[in-house]
Design a protein around this nucleic acid. Structure first.
Lengths: 170, 170
DNA sequence: CGCTTCTTTCAGAAATTTGTGAAGTTAAGG
DNA sequence: CCTTAACTTCACAAATTTCTGAAAGAAGCG
């Protein structure tokens, strides 16, 4: 074991598990409040706060004090909404879960599937209530709003990628 | 009772409660899936599908087959997130709930409070993990993303209002 | 091939959320 | 003021969701 570097100029040789945990739980609480189930929120927080951006199932269960089953469920959820990806650790049957710093928040805006279904429901409503009724017009306007946002989002994300390129270069 | 107009060219003299209900439940299901509690979703759907854009508590309970208590709870929720407003029906102790077609989806984008809290949590994380650590940098980038989106949203909404003005004039 | 290590699935216990009836509160209208 | 219509609050029952332990299922490694 090499000597541990402890100088303050040295970037965090060791992380204070206490601080990490505080952030993880705090951030997870926000996600949960925004509608994400508890365990996925916590798992995601832990990944986000990891230096490598990856953790194994065991590490997650250990750090968050939850069962392997809970990890499994949470990860399945997160993978489904493209917030994490799973990789096989080479030369081991351990699985490893990764948060791509960029991919995940793009997933946030890619609620496309959701927006699409809202739009479908609204279109159905316009038709069945009548496009020329007050209610129908209201639904049509709402539909128009979502379509507009959907288009705009494309440009916004393009601009973000440029902005990011120069502010957070790889 | 006047004769009922039945021509296909005539815009829906009467609304088919069946169709209305189908839309309401379908749309509400999407909202629920996106994280809104059940009753608020249904109440909101009913308001959105009403011709006047307003319904009384009794009408809501009646149409959705729920208790006054459930209506009360749902409306409280919706008012809190600015998706409906409450008005007193003049000369009566009936309350009336209204969906402002424009106001409500502006509320959708005004998840400001939520985004702010995410940002706070992330800032805390950057500080406590160290801005010069890999994890700290990841959090900083994520924070940057939210700040960027927040700014962009202002412009998007301005453009929408213009777009809307000419496509859906009052 | 079988052993071992890790992950997933499943059934059920525990906790949380949701909706109701009933009592309580407010305010209109006599 | 008192009555009464309407909404809200509260405690509890019901339904749903969430997490766990146990068993089953893959996949590396000898």
């Amino acid at each position: 074991m090499p000597d541990r570097v402890r100088g303050m100029t040295e970037p965090s040789a060791e992380r204070d598990p206490e601080s990490v945990s505080r952030f993880v739980e705090h951030f997870a609480a926000q996600l949960t409040e925004a509608g994400m189930p508890r365990m996925p929120s916590r798992v995601f927080g832990a990944l986000l706060a990891s230096d490598a951006g990856t953790l194994t199932s065991a590490e997650l269960g250990d750090q968050l004090k939850i069962s392997p089953a809970a990890v499994s469920g949470a990860v399945r959820y997160l993978a489904q909404v493209h917030m994490v990806s799973r990789e096989r650790e080479p030369g081991s049957r351990r699985e490893r879960y990764r948060v791509h710093s960029d991919q995940w928040y793009e997933a946030l805006t890619n609620r496309e599937a959701i927006i699409k279904r809202w739009e479908d429901a609204l279109r159905e409503g316009v038709t069945s209530l009548g496009a020329d009724t007050p209610a129908g017009r209201r639904l049509a306007e709402t539909l128009g709003f979502f379509e507009f946002i959907e288009e705009e989002l494309v440009g916004v994300m393009e601009r973000w990628r440029v902005h990011r390129e120069q502010k957070y270069p790889r």
